[in-house]
Simulated scan of single mutants.
Amino acid sequence: MSSSQVALVTGATGTIGRAIAAELGARGAALLLTGRRKDVLDDVAGKLRERGTRVEVAVGDVTDPAHVDDAVARASDTLGPVTILVNNAGGASSVTTSVADSDPEAWLHTLLTDTYGPYLFARAVLPSMLRRKQGRIITVASRAGTAAIPGAADYVVAKTAAVRLSENIAAETRGTGVAVFSLHPGGVVSALVEEQINRGLVPRERFPHPPEAAARMIAELAEGHYDVLSGAYLDVDDDLDALAALRTEESGPTRVLRVTGLPDEWHARPFT
Results as ranks from 00 to 15, higher is better:
L240M: 12
L183N: 08
Y233D: 02
V193F: 11
T260W: 13
M1C: 11
D237S: 13
V59G: 00
V163R: 09
R269H: 11
K159I: 00
W107M: 05
R269Q: 14
A66R: 05
D43R: 13
V140Y: 03
G91A: 14
V180H: 01
R216G: 10
L48S: 02
D241T: 05
I138D: 01
R131D: 15
R136N: 12
S4C: 08
R123I: 08
A179Y: 09
G60S: 09
S230G: 07
V72T: 00
S76P: 02
E105K: 09
E23L: 04
L257V: 09
H67V: 14
A153H: 02
K38M: 11
T34S: 15
P203K: 03
S4K: 13
G80R: 07
G14M: 10
M129E: 00
R143I: 12
G135W: 01
R132E: 10
S128W: 07
L234Q: 03
P185I: 08
A222C: 07
T34Q: 15
T260C: 12
G46Y: 01
E172G: 05
T63Q: 06
G11S: 11
P118C: 06
D42P: 10
G261D: 08
S2N: 11
A30I: 00
H267M: 11
A148T: 15
G231T: 04
H209T: 14
A242R: 10
T110S: 11
T110G: 06
V163D: 09
V259H: 12
G90H: 01
D42Q: 10
D227M: 02
A124I: 06
A58C: 13
F181I: 07
V256D: 14
L165N: 01
P203R: 03
T78I: 15
V228K: 00
V59F: 04
H267Y: 07
W107I: 06
A222L: 14
S4V: 13
S128Y: 07
A66Q: 10
A66S: 14
T96R: 15
D101V: 04
M217V: 13
E212M: 08
T160Y: 06
V202H: 02
V188D: 09
T96L: 13
G200R: 12
A12Y: 11
E50R: 08
G175V: 09
T272Q: 08
G261I: 08
L120Y: 03
V95D: 08
G200Y: 10
L120W: 02
G175F: 05
A22C: 09
E205G: 04
A66K: 05
L41Y: 03
L165C: 06
S128D: 08
D235Y: 05
G231M: 04
E194G: 15
A215E: 05
R199A: 13
E105F: 10
S2G: 12
V95C: 12
E23Y: 03
F271P: 00
G135Y: 02
E220P: 14
M129T: 01
A244I: 10
T260A: 10
L31K: 01
Y119S: 15
A45E: 02
V178W: 04
P211T: 01
N87L: 14
A153F: 10
R18M: 07
A213V: 11
V156N: 15
S190L: 05
G91D: 08
I137R: 11
V57R: 02
R255N: 12
P208V: 08
E249Q: 14
L33I: 06
P208Y: 06
L192W: 15
